[in-house]
Design a protein around this nucleic acid. Structure first.
Lengths: 234, 234
DNA sequence: ACAAAAGTGTTGAGAGTACACCCATGC
DNA sequence: GCATGGGTGTACTCTCAACACTTTTGT
């Protein structure tokens, strides 16, 4: 395709890097935004925590590979997943050239049935605000994922992907406060989210034992909620 | 790294796809937003137009590969470039598995010294509003690039990367109108862009022969201009 | 003097922000 | 009856959008 590499060159004859997918798995656990990490058992970086991932099989799409990795770690399928960025510094894996296509996934915590036994590797949920040292360039990947998640939350409704099907407005507000890491005004939050017309009442109430029972809402799956961005220029 | 592929497996022993970079090169030419395409001379898709690209060399970073492809086609370096998305459907190249990491570049047209002779391939600038049929999945890539460019223009100042160093406010407005494909109000445009404090007068005037001479401005390179997005929720 | 493009302000509407009290329930 | 969390309205500010005429130059 270029003057240096003839376009009729058989691409399969070229020196090829390895390609992996890594999946940053976010969930809300105990009033905190957490990510799932895996403890490496072998060099390089043995004993260090890493983002789950693995090689892309030669006949599977990138999305399929990412979904497979997610399912292997969490036994969850069909959750929100989005491609993040592709990292390919030549020295990012000391063994050989590895290019990694990264994804992030949003998993409602009640959907996870996590069997620590069925994977040889030790796994754990870590607060994004208190991370251990990570293998490879995984800290950079995770920082990027968090930036993107925050950003996306501000102009789309992906926040719902982290919640159970039915939730109270207070729970929803709490989720936004955790992720954005700032307090929100209750009245303004409710007015704005209800006027966006993306929620419907389920008719059920949630009784916590303490205080007045709260209405339960669900997200209208067909709702399209993208705010128009504030333009820098008119 | 998973239970299916042991993490101590030598990654270089794995079946590996080929990896390319493709670069969507945008420029403003003759009051139109155009992209640079290359006519393929060999199968597959011989005779069809394609986005410039090529294989990632085993020792170079993805960014270096993209910058190299850009320079080979345009003789331009050091322009705005940004990773777009990674496309990896197993059947996107009929020859073998090829994963492509795509970038887009913004090139001011006066910076391009385009020697059609020094590359065997025929190249051409095409309006993004009137594209020929493209090879592989390149139409999808291009549509994605255009969406991202428009989007990015609305909340950052990357539009300046398509303009010469010095420009008039009318030229700047014209550039925005071309890319956004909608007319803008002159007074509102000027008020908003001047109040953003990212331009400085050069002191020079542009005389077109017709009409009143216009002040020339330049972009303040140190200016950080990212607008905060309008939030979906408070 | 006229053609052509540059330059310049005001007003009305809608959205964002700040803020404090009453309500329903369990114990 | 009191502790706990749920639920509600209003006023001010700021940004956005619409809109038309004067100024400077070349011919």
């Amino acid at each position: 395709m270029t003057n240096n590499i003839p376009e009729n060159y058989d691409p399969s004859a070229f020196a090829r890097p390895s390609v992996t997918v890594d999946v940053v798995i976010f969930s809300l656990v105990q009033d905190d935004l957490k990510v799932l990490l895996i403890k490496r058992k072998h060099p390089p970086f043995a004993g260090m925590w890493a983002i789950p991932g693995g090689f892309v099989r030669i006949e599977e799409s990138l999305e399929d590979a990412a979904a497979r990795e997610l399912a292997e770690e969490t036994n969850v399928r069909d959750v929100y997943m989005e491609q993040l960025y592709t990292f390919g510094q030549p020295d990012r894996d000391p063994r050989t050239r590895v290019i990694t296509v990264t994804y992030f996934a949003l998993v409602p915590h009640d959907a996870i049935h996590h069997y620590p036994g069925d994977d040889a590797a030790e796994t754990g949920w870590f607060s994004v605000f208190d991370l251990p040292e990570l293998a490879f360039d995984h800290r950079e990947i995770l920082d990027y994922a968090l930036t993107r998640l925050r950003y996306k939350l501000e102009y789309t409704a992906v926040g719902f992907e982290l919640l159970p099907d039915e939730f109270t407005l207070s729970e929803l507000q709490k989720a936004y406060e955790i992720i954005l890491h700032e307090p929100l005004d209750k009245r303004n939050f409710r007015r704005k989210i209800l006027s966006a017309d993306i929620l419907e009442e389920t008719g059920h109430m949630k009784k916590l034992g303490e205080g007045r029972p709260a209405k339960l809402y669900r997200y209208q799956q067909n709702a399209i909620a993208e705010v128009k961005t504030r333009r820098l220029f008119p």
